[in-house]
Nucleic acid binder design. Structure first.
Length: 262
DNA sequence: CTGCAGGCCCTTA
DNA sequence: TAAGGGCCTGCA
C-alpha cells in the first residue's frame, strides 16, 4: 500500500480511453488493473494523489513502466499548446490525465484482433470469458492454440476465432517470433505483423503502440479518420509530433468520443 | 425488422 | 491500388 503524487494522470480517463480492456471499477469506487499476472487496485484521492494497493518493489518493477510514469506528459502537452491547433488544445484539456500504457505484447496482439468490427463493452466481455478458465490470467499462445473453433466462438469471437487460432499456432511454430518483433523498429514491425491473417493496418499500429511501445505509431480507426476528415479537411500532418504521434492519437480519440456523446 | 460497432480478407477491374 | 461485398455477434 503506497500513496503517491502523479501529475497528468487520471486512472478513470485511462480506463475509458479504449487502449486497454482489463481495467474496471470496483463496487467501492476503486480501479482494478489486471496486467503482468498481477492485480492492482488504485484509489484516486484528489487531482494528483493516488493510493496504489501494492508494495514499492512491485510499483517500481511493474507499474511505473506500465503507466509510462517516466515520461513528462506535461511537456508533451506544452508542445501541443504551442501548435496553435484549437482542436488538439481542447482535446488535451479534456483528456489531461491520459497516458499511453505499456502493456504486454501478447495480450495486445489478441485484444486488438478481437477489437475489429466490435465495440468496447463486447471486447471486454469476450476477453473476460477468455481469461476465466485461467484464473483471470490472460491466456497464453499455448492456451489459445489448444482451444477449438467452437470453444473460441462460444466466447463470442465469431469470425475472429480463426485469426486467434492462426496467430497462436504461428507463435508455437516459431513462425511468429515475439522476441524478434520486439527488436524491430516501428515500420518493420508493421510489415511483420501484417503478414498474419487478421492483422491489418489499424490493428498493427495498435500493437506497435500499445504492445511494442512505439509512441510514434498512429492507429487510424473510424474515429480518428472522422476527426481528420471533419476537423482537418482530410489533411492532418503527424510529422509535427515526431516520436509521440500515438499519444496525440490517444487524446484525439478520447476527446472525440466524448464530443459524440454530447 | 434493419443498422451498426475502434477492420480485415478476398475478389474485381 | 482502389472499390465493394461479406463477415460473427449482440444490442438499439
Amino acid at each position: 500500500m503506497m500513496k503517491i503524487i502523479i501529475p497528468d494522470f487520471s486512472i478513470e480517463q485511462i480506463a475509458n480511453s479504449g487502449q486497454c480492456f482489463r481495467i474496471g471499477k470496483t463496487t467501492e469506487g476503486k480501479w482494478r488493473v489486471q496486467a503482468f499476472g498481477k492485480i492492482l487496485e488504485i484509489q484516486q484521492l484528489d487531482e494528483k494523489t493516488f493510493i496504489f494497493d501494492c508494495e514499492i518493489d512491485e510499483y517500481e518493477k511493474v507499474w511505473f513502466e506500465y503507466f509510462d510514469l517516466s515520461r513528462d506528459y506535461g511537456e508533451i502537452k506544452n508542445n501541443i499548446m504551442c501548435c496553435d491547433d484549437d482542436y488538439l488544445i481542447k482535446a488535451i484539456l479534456y483528456g489531461y490525465g491520459i497516458r499511453v500504457l505499456k502493456q504486454e505484447l501478447w495480450e495486445v496482439i489478441i485484444s486488438f484482433i478481437i477489437s475489429q468490427r466490435n465495440n468496447i463493452p463486447r471486447i471486454k466481455a469476450i476477453i473476460e470469458r477468455l481469461c476465466k478458465p485461467h484464473n483471470g490470467h490472460f491466456p497464453s499462445p499455448e492456451d489459445l492454440a489448444r482451444c477449438s473453433q467452437e470453444e473460441l466462438k462460444a466466447a463470442g469471437l465469431g469470425y475472429r476465432a480463426e485469426y486467434i487460432s492462426g496467430v497462436s499456432r504461428a507463435v508455437l511454430d516459431r513462425r511468429f517470433d515475439q522476441d524478434m518483433l520486439k527488436q524491430m523498429g516501428h515500420d518493420e514491425s508493421i510489415l511483420y505483423l501484417k503478414q498474419f491473417k487478421g492483422i491489418g493496418d489499424k490493428v498493427a499500429h495498435c500493437i506497435s503502440l500499445y504492445g511494442l511501445h512505439n509512441m510514434g505509431a498512429f492507429p487510424q480507426d473510424v474515429w480518428i479518420k472522422r476527426i481528420i476528415d471533419r476537423q482537418y479537411k482530410g489533411n492532418f500532418d503527424i510529422s509535427r509530433f515526431q516520436g509521440y504521434a500515438g499519444i496525440i492519437q490517444q487524446y484525439m480519440f478520447f476527446y472525440e468520443r466524448f464530443i459524440s456523446k454530447t
